[in-house]
Amino acid sequence: MNTFLAAFWAETLKARRSKVALLTAAGFLILPIVDGLFMFILKDPERARTMGLIGVKAQITAGVADWPTFFQMLLLGTATGAGILFAFITAWVFGREFSDHTVKELLALPTPRGIIVGAKFVVIALWMLGLTLMIFVIGLGIGTVVTIPDWSPELQWASFWSLMLIVLITSMLVPFVALFASAGRGYMLPLGWAILTMALAQIAIVMGWGDWFPWSVPGLIASLSGASTERIELHSYIVVSLAFIVGIAATFAWWRNADQAQ
């Protein structure tokens, strides 16, 4: 059997048997469901007022019940939520080998460590892609059921590709999570890193340096209006690409060279 396919099959089996797959799907499903709920409320202002806090909150967040607003909320929610959710997935895929002490069973095999790490990254990428497609399709279904106005195929596809771009940029930042899950031998360090980068991303945006800080870029892409979007140019994609390359290279190097003494 091809060594990569063997390692890939092993990783998919671990993911399929885990409850984490269901948990992440449930976590990501909150986005289109809440989005649809807001649209449902906003469609009828009278109902929004009678619903008290939720109605008021929904008006503050979204404003009007239409497809452009629906997609805008989905993109913003993805830009914020995907960072944590994808970090959670990556921390689990890599960190579980250390918390379950199974890493030592992966280190002296005919299948090289690099192949195993590569298979883990591919599984994570497919996992993230699957979740993204899931929320988009389910979002379309929810929007259709709620019957919100102003749908067009152009808007749908433009929103789809924006969503894919946000997810692509976010996913390019997860190798650092993999590195910290490996070097930290578990879950705490990578999740701490994810929370830290999320906070720093907000600070960078406030200070006007968001376009230079890789972890701010998904949020800036998602905010379709305003000056911040204009700043996302080539240099922002370059810093994200650099973060991706450094994270990937460091993770592979760590697995290949670090002492596995625990």
Binding site: M1, T3, A6, A7, W9, A10, L13, K14, E105, L106, L109, P110, T111, I116
Partner: peptide, 8 residues
């Protein structure tokens, strides 16, 4: 089975 696959 995982071990078998990784052992080739």
């Amino acid at each position: 089975e995982i071990a078998r696959c990784l052992q080739g």
